[in-house]
Design a protein around this nucleic acid. Structure first.
Lengths: 225, 225
DNA sequence: CTTAACCCTTACGTATGGGTGAGGGTTACG
DNA sequence: CGTAACCCTCACCCATACGTAAGGGTTAAG
């Protein structure tokens, strides 16, 4: 075999290829890459670099890093690596959050540059920060037609400032919930030790077994008519 | 006037009644309450208790606390007090998460006991804990036909144990986002001070002004093709 | 009597972030 | 050549938690 990229790697059909094979590639390969890329692929092979290490190989080429055609990812690979579904990747592409580096000639497969993975992870982080996909879309668009680097950076800075404040609020809210949960658990532990086995659940509101502690709201709320 | 509950409180029509009036009530009043309740209302009035203080008046009555008919809340009052919409309250009622204590005779207005407010707040807290309304529904149903107090309590305890763990995970995740946000802000602050005004935003990937610090993922993600 | 603020029920609409096919290709393996 | 694993493009479907009328009451104020 002349290339690391090969299909199905001689695994039985109905079985998922092991991770190394999955990362190595499982379809496409030289399927539709540029002829140039194709040639490059066969010549580069055996370069001595680790199979799929995510370290940058110090590309000493041009300023604009041309992604090694061997490292292009199919949508399924990208999805799996990012913990997303193929559908999600498609969606992100539709929304313009991500771009395939190229398409294979034959099947028109999307081929993503390796840093697309970083991009998808970035999207996920923003989602966890509470941004919707359309807000991310807006952010990306603003960035794409930003006049200067400085202005773009300052926009981003403002966004992250807001998000920092928001995140701190959310943390505070969750911490207070945590405190309430702990109090509730402490309160409820009494039930396990001191409650008599066949008391009706309606009698909880008059329970005197909690050493004068009122039921925390998280507990009391359930006992309301 | 014979009662605290009165309508519109002599405010101009198009204007929202001030908070005190809102809490005091603005409709219904003796509109449809039980005749018994109605009588009670006029006799109890001027009991000397604070207008609408949420403290329990130590009801020395029967074991099952009969809500003072004067303190019953209309759906709008309840909603406002809980920071929800009327629609949301209706929804909660439909789902069986909350029950109107009674309906007025004339307009069939929902009249809620004061502790419904606590209940609604409880619902909100559970939502913030990540429970969906149907999960809350399930919890309420389980509780309602729980055989014994102890078993009910132990179920709740288990739930809250899970939620405590989950909440801690969420806090940890948010904290790590917070760290990333701070790092990104620090990184971006350099842009404001050291970046030249008319550099293209495409040049960010080769920026050497950040003292050898690589761009944090939250920043780098945006610069990807 | 009109207006305005509440309320009622019923019921359809909405946004988000995908899920889930259907119908059709491409490769590689046996 | 069949099968299985990828992939493609539509294009409809889904659950959640309400929003938003529409059509119709009730009261109190002017």
């Amino acid at each position: 075999m002349s290339n690391r990229r090969r299909l199905q790697v001689s695994q039985p059909h109905g079985v998922f290829a092991p991770r190394s094979a999955v990362v190595g590639g499982q379809g496409v390969a030289l399927l539709g890459a540029h002829p140039a890329a194709r040639a490059q692929a066969s010549s580069v092979e055996g370069s001595g670099l680790g199979e799929a290490t995510p370290v940058e190989p110090e590309t000493p080429s041009s300023v604009v890093a041309a992604p090694d055609p061997e490292e292009l990812l199919q949508v399924g690979e990208l999805a799996k690596a990012a913990g997303k579904t193929v559908r999600a990747i498609h969606l992100y592409e539709d929304l313009g959050l991500i771009h395939a580096h190229e398409r294979s000639e034959k099947g028109r497969y999307r081929l993503f540059a390796p840093d697309s993975l970083q991009r998808v992870r970035w999207i996920s982080k923003l989602q966890h920060l509470g941004l919707s996909l359309s807000q991310i879309q807006e952010l990306v668009r603003e960035h794409e037609d930003a006049d200067s680097a400085r202005l773009g950076a300052s926009k981003l800075r403002q966004l992250y400032l807001d998000k920092l404040a928001e995140t701190q609020e959310r943390i505070a809210a969750l911490r207070s919930l945590e405190v309430e949960l702990r109090a509730s658990l402490a309160y409820l532990s009494t039930c396990d030790s001191a409650c008599e086995p066949n008391l009706s659940i309606r009698s909880c509101t008059e329970c005197e077994r909690h050493l004068g502690h009122a039921a925390p709201e998280l507990v009391a709320g359930l006992h309301i008519t």
